[in-house]
Design a protein around this nucleic acid. Structure first.
Lengths: 260, 260
DNA sequence: CGCCACTTTGAATTAGCTCAAATTCCGTGG
DNA sequence: CCACGGAATTTGAGCTAATTCAAAGTGGCG
């Protein structure tokens, strides 16, 4: 039987204690949260963006649609879905408050994916030509846009690494960890998260079947890394976020400990 | 036994003939090739970039290194490798002439991956602050940089989709198709390509083992989709690029035809 | 209340992995 | 020029993680 508490602070930074890491992470999250708020404030002041309330299932933009606008998520959750012309659908990204949408359309003049709201939220829409024009005068804005694109590139690579190197259980654990971390960066609680996706969507995003997602979640719950909040299995408690991260680590050591 | 010629023009655009598609693709490639040349000319004129010759194995920049420069590949081939702190290595991208390197470093002030030359080539290095400064005055440059980032985002998503939705054989076929297409876009011949990567590197990039890559290549060769140019199995002939693309399509239809 | 979408779990199957051995290629030094 | 050694590749055989197929179970909502 696996004891998730056995390896409490799997050594990342040689000198750092688990507590120290947590504090530092907390600082970083606060900084990021402030960064988001400042970004939104700046955009609001500069652009008077068109605001739109979206509900679960609403399309924000669509593959093939002519690109003319960038969007910023002020609240809610969005999934990014790539469609191949042969009919494959692939969830390729998740977006949270403060994230930008639509960069994919810049190069070809048309969006290359669908973006779908997974919950009620507010999307701000900016004309790209206006963004470009103001970037010229305002280096702060320019930096901000570049940083957003850069983050997206780095995040996409992490996704690929996760899919390519982790087992199904570890991928699901890492997905939950990522989701919780994204909430933490926005100043939200992370001990309890509400998945806005079905098992099928999660599986699609992680490159596995919905049954495997379900089994992995059950295994993670069985050994106490997560708990299902009664009634509805979309609500998940994460008693110790670090334990999830540790599990991902352990799952790829040679002397691999597995869930049971 | 699979006959790859059985489905010569698997319907993509309803009204398009295979020939028409090829011509249109040819046009697009020429446009892109010109676009690259113009980009390089513009950068050369604007920045007098520092030029550096790299050889196979040379590191262009490294994970953790302070970010201050963007790079543009003037010639050669580069792989982008993500390193996780727990020691995993993941090839997350391939770069060709005209591609930019280093966007990942913008957000955090430090590069988040290694970039390694796979062949002799020339890298141009630009100071990021200088790029920013000139972007302010020159909308053409600004557009250009944004387009490069946008392309990278779109491409990364395609990678993820490929890994998540395709079988091993299809993934290898799609990898070869992508490589050939990248050459085509740069005005190079695509009927014969020299892989600059070992089976292990390809497998890492595609999320499979080196043995599986080898087996898939053998299968693709057995049914005539590719041919090994004698002496050394790095050189691969692709008699009909479209046949490779068709194979990827067919491999995911319900009535799936498989290699033998 | 009953339908429908989602989820869980089991059993059988399989694609891809691991381990192992043989082969080929290529650079190096005699 | 050829022999040697290490790295890369190929191929086979057995195994296993994840898939597929199937059958319940659960919850939300009209």
């Amino acid at each position: 039987m696996l004891d998730p508490d056995a390896v409490p602070a799997a050594g990342r930074m040689p000198g750092g204690t688990a507590c120290g890491d947590a504090l530092r992470a907390g600082d970083a999250n606060q900084r990021f949260s402030r960064h988001i708020s400042e970004t939104l404030a700046l955009l609001q002041a500069q652009f008077m963006p068109q605001r739109r309330i979206v509900h679960a299932g609403d399309l924000i933009y669509q593959t093939g649609e002519r690109f003319a606008h960038l969007h910023v998520l002020n609240s809610g959750f969005v999934k990014v879905v790539n469609l191949s012309f042969d009919g494959r659908e692939q969830v390729v990204g998740l977006k949270f408050r403060g994230d930008w949408l639509g960069f994919d359309g810049i190069a070809g003049g048309a969006y290359t994916c669908d973006t779908v709201a997974m919950d009620t939220g507010e999307v701000w829409t900016l004309r790209y030509d206006e963004v470009l024009a103001r970037c010229a005068g305002q280096s702060a804005l320019l930096r901000l846009v570049h940083e957003a694109m850069s983050r997206e590139i780095a995040r996409d690579r992490d996704s690929l690494m996760s899919v390519c190197t982790l087992s199904a259980d570890a991928r699901v654990a890492d997905f939950l960890r990522y989701w919780a971390e994204s909430l933490a960066k926005r100043g939200l609680r992370t001990d309890q998260i509400t998945l806005r996706m079905t098992r099928a969507e999660i599986g699609n995003y992680l490159g596995m079947t919905l049954e495997t997602v379900s089994r992995s979640l059950s295994r993670l719950a069985r050994c106490g890394l997560i708990e299902f909040v009664e009634k509805g299995r979309r609500e998940i408690r994460i008693p110790r976020l670090q334990a999830l991260a540790d599990f991902v680590q352990r799952s790829l050591t040679p002397a691999s400990v597995t869930l049971q």
